[in-house]
Design a protein around this nucleic acid. Sequence first.
DNA 1: CCCGTGACATCGG
DNA 2: TCCGATGCCACGG
Length: 104
Amino acid sequence: MDTLFKEKIYKLTRRIPKGKVATYGQLALLAGKPKAARAVGGFMRTNPDAPRTPCHRVVAKNGALTGYSMKKGIITKKQILRAEGVPFRGERVDIKKALWAGVI
DNA sequence: CCCGTGACATCGG
DNA sequence: TCCGATGCCACGG
């Protein structure tokens, strides 16, 4: 069911270890819908699980920090990730090194 | 039930 | 590297 899909996304997001990040597409893939990356972003946006789900550890595949409440929130998101030890390359996350291994 | 929207991903220039 | 266009999906009104 799609509801399950949504729930998987939240669960996966919670499993992302500190200092690492996952991409929307990756979460969608792990949840069983490789092409639902867009929908994943939608879940974070409506995100009823705000405190439980570290959506700040979810970034675009190219490492760009998108969303997080508002455009202003991007700044906060960046600060948090940097504080967690996520390598940055300019305004984007060094996805190459910070990408979560996935299922452990 | 149909339509519009959006925190994505990918390709081409 | 940056910009624009296209495809995919689930949600809410």
